[in-house]
Computed example of a mutant assay.
Amino acid sequence: MSTLGTTGVFLPVPFTGAVPLARQREAAVRLERAGYGTIWTNETVGGKDALVQLAVLLAATERVAFATGIANIWAREPEIAHGGAALLADAFPGRFALGLGVGYAQQAEATGREYGSPVETMRNYLSRMDGPMMPPAADAQYPRILGANGPKMLALAAERADGVLPAGLPPEFTAEVRKLLGPDKLVVVALTAVPGDREHAKAAVSMRLGMPWFTKAMARLGYSTDDVDGVVDATVAYGGPESIGAKVREHLAAGADHVTLMPVLEGEFLDAVTQLEHLAPALP
């Protein structure tokens, strides 16, 4: 099974443009050298296959683990997802984890399929991943982690997955997730990290503040999204390296096994990697 380490980071590849693989390889080597336990990569539908991307980056590095955060279930059939993940786990033992997410209705529609109930859609996807295949997939184990913030998807993760990846919520939520999943499941937290002041942090999460799921989740934890400063302080790691490291430690103390940073960085791709190298020594 994969060893994620305590702290990871999303490779700062934007959704809006392609980064040449030579630069991605360089970035992966530098982030491995900086001490991050896992490098995560994003995915939507089309333009990039996260499993192929990680195959290239795994081959370019020696020790660091890689994980999809999150592989979109509409990008590939479940049998293909399991076959590709098992092949990577076989080729790079202990260095790969598969994060899966149900995405959005428009992504399903773009592939000509019906979104349906997110939880039942994911349940059926997992069942097909575990079903018979011809030819059979490689006989290799890898952690299967579900992207989830809502109670129903969290419950499905507790039942059918190796762990869960909630994003953008405070340490109190991490504690609730640990209680729900128990001691034996992986709790991975995606934490927005902004190397700037509170005003920069507000700008980075402004869209989230208007999302109904976020408003509802924060209200249940005792926060009002009208108190923007309070919400930002609770959910974003911002400031200098020590402040960002302190927020990571809050989630670890609340029960997270691994915290991966979702960096909001300035400059070109490799400039962003330099910023992440500077941050790494302050992280647990």
Rank of each mutant, 00 (worst) to 15 (best):
S243F: 03
V177W: 09
H200L: 13
N42D: 10
V9A: 08
E77D: 12
L4M: 05
L156W: 01
L276N: 07
T121M: 03
A110N: 12
Q106N: 14
T121R: 14
P136T: 06
P263Q: 13
R128G: 00
M129Y: 09
T7E: 07
G83Y: 05
L154S: 10
A175M: 09
H251T: 00
G147E: 01
A280D: 07
T61C: 12
A175K: 13
Q53F: 09
F173R: 09
P195N: 13
P135V: 07
F15Q: 14
A86Q: 07
E176D: 15
D227I: 06
A75T: 08
M211S: 14
V64R: 06
P20F: 02
A237V: 00
L169H: 03
G17E: 13
T61D: 08
N149T: 14
A155C: 07
K152M: 12
F15L: 14
A67W: 10
A86W: 04
A193K: 10
R249H: 03
G255D: 11
W40M: 15
V45D: 04
A71T: 13
A65Y: 06
F173Q: 11
G8R: 08
A246I: 00
T44I: 12
L100W: 08
G101I: 12
V102M: 00
F269V: 10
D271W: 00
T174L: 10
H200W: 14
T41Q: 13
Q275R: 14
L146Y: 10
A34E: 05
V187S: 05
T6M: 08
T44N: 15
N124V: 09
E242D: 13
T3S: 12
P284M: 04
L31H: 07
T215C: 11
R128W: 05
P263G: 09
